[in-house]
Amino acid sequence: MARREMVRTQEVVKTYRMGAETIFALNGVSLTVYAGEYVSIMGPSGSGKSTLFNMIGGLDRPTAGEVYIDEVDVAQLDPFELAWLRCRKIGYIFQTFNIIPVMTALENVTLPMAFAGLGEDEARDKGARLLDTVGLGQRLHHRPAELSGGQQQRVAIARALANDPAIILADEPTGNLDLKTGSEIIELLCRMKEEQGVTVITATHDHKMLAASDRVVWITDGRISRIQSREELDIQIGAIETRKT
């Protein structure tokens, strides 16, 4: 069965200049992520993990090579089209939650819908439904300051899902959460993948993520060092811990 390609990077190179030196943050990365997959990008800090992640999210332009998101070459898009892409196609989740602090949970979730031009009543209903899905049905009108970290991250997930994106990009989504809350967030992401059929791509060094991923891409020194599939992972995780198969 031919699977639909969601994200494809082709020999992506990203260089930074640091004084006289040129640093290769990414040095020829080719990666294809298929629709409905849960892919984790793993790697130590400084490995180029975040850079690759930003490329996939259309947040940064490659120095060389191409990035296709849903068959669209990101480099060819103007700012207006990029904004459209970010609004409709991609849902972002951050390590630091990045909920708009002056808005209630519901307002945060309906904001991207408003950007997408959805009517206010419709947005409110949909936002309430989404918040209910992530388990915050009772906290629609709370502000971020009145929510715990895990709850804020749930709001962020609901917000990421606001415009029924094809891809959810999560950058260290469990990085600022304790073990239990982190696991809950991972579970929620998995559920969203199953229920909504979105492609989930996370950058992480949280090993709990491994169990949830369909594939794990390891990045070292700006290159993909190996890609592990589900089957390989199960064996490995089974060997390390007897927690989950």
Binding site: L59, P79, R86, T96, N98, I100, P101, L111, P112
Partner: peptide, 13 residues
């Protein structure tokens, strides 16, 4: 961060 988040949600300059 807030501005960045807004832009990620699709806000134009």
């Amino acid at each position: 961060r807030e501005i960045g988040a807004l832009k990620c949600l699709g806000a134009l300059d």
